[in-house]
């Protein structure tokens, strides 16, 4: 028995030592990422007056540098392509934990998918994995059952197969990240043809997911507790506006928060030239929508 326990202890010790060699991959992973916005957040480098949160529609339709110029308030866009409201809540909490609290938060809303199941909108674990060297991120992954608690002790527990691909991520040519964090679409697909949709489905609130509603409520509570003005932005889609969703959304809003809906009378929002696809504006469309947001902020100071 003594021999057995001795051998086991030695084995675990050697494993522990060898494991530390893998820290190289953990250390290297963030550098290989093209999108380094989350790391900036964790390192306390996002001290801005206005923070924009959202999914790809927030990233592409709202240009933070333009808001900064038009409102004289420093702005940064922390919207992530394919992210859902749960991830946006996490980003907001991270900003508040490591940075000076912003004066305003603009939350871009995915009308009409914000609260229902949508397979393209998720908690962006892929943005967290490369930052596993940070305990804050690793703990978040443990809490969300993406990592085992063993990763607190072993470096290997924080790595995945992608950690060994020591190749820098490629820059997306369609929507590169601007210094202000926004990602407007600057290159159109050649064969994209979209049609303006007049018949829209009725919004069914029964399909809403409780976890998404909870995250949305949490974002409002966090902003209220921190005295941050929360502005909801509803960008255009290449279809008729869904008033059912708007009614439902207003019911979920706290009265102190503001909402800006794109100018439905503006004909450009029915012009294909201003769209990248049915759900995302092209850069020229984003500039128009952003200026509407800036005007709204200036009016509601």
């Amino acid at each position: 028995m003594k021999k057995f326990l001795l051998r086991i202890s030695l084995f675990v010790l050697v494993l522990f030592i060898v494991d530390k060699g893998f820290y190289y991959f953990l250390y290297k992973a963030p550098e290989l990422e093209y999108d380094q916005r989350l790391e900036k957040v964790i390192n306390g480098k996002i001290n801005k007056d206005i923070i924009v949160l959202g999914s790809s529609r927030g990233a592409g339709n709202i240009i933070a540098s333009q808001i900064e110029k038009e409102t004289n308030l420093s702005s940064y866009n922390l919207s992530y392509i394919g992210s859902n409201v749960l991830f946006q809540e996490f980003i907001l909490k991270s900003v508040l934990k490591f940075n000076k609290k912003p004066k305003k938060v603009i939350l871009s809303i995915d009308n009409t998918y914000e609260f229902v199941f949508e397979k393209t909108l998720n908690f962006k674990f892929d943005k967290l994995y490369p930052l596993s060297k940070y305990n804050y991120i690793n703990n978040e992954l443990i809490d969300r059952k993406e990592r085992s608690i063993i990763s607190k002790v072993f470096c290997l527990g924080r790595l995945s197969k992608n950690s060994f691909i020591l190749k820098k991520e490629e820059i997306p040519t369609k929507n590169p990240i601007l210094p202000c964090g926004s990602m407007p679409f600057v290159e159109k697909s050649k064969d994209t043809k979209i049609e303006f949709l007049k018949d829209i489905k009725k919004y069914d609130s029964k399909k809403e997911l409780p976890e998404k509603l909870k995250a949305f409520k949490n974002i409002q509570t966090i902003c209220k507790e921190n005295n941050i003005q929360l502005i909801f932005a509803l960008p255009p889609n290449f279809n008729e506006f869904n008033t059912d969703f708007e009614k439902r959304f207003r019911k979920l809003m706290l009265p102190e928060n503001k909402i800006i809906i794109y100018n439905r009378k503006n004909p450009i929002y029915k012009n294909q030239e201003y769209y990248f696809d049915a759900l995302h504006l092209f850069k020229n469309g984003a500039t128009v929508f952003t200026s509407e947001i800036s005007a709204f902020i200036n009016q509601n100071r």
Binding site: F11, L15, K145, E146, G157, L159
Partner: peptide, 19 residues
């Protein structure tokens, strides 16, 4: 022997998905 076991353990760590 131990190197082989370590390789298996590393694979278990690295290729593990959700429980």
């Amino acid at each position: 022997r131990w190197s082989f076991y370590f390789v298996l353990l590393f694979a278990i760590f690295i290729f593990s998905t959700k429980e």
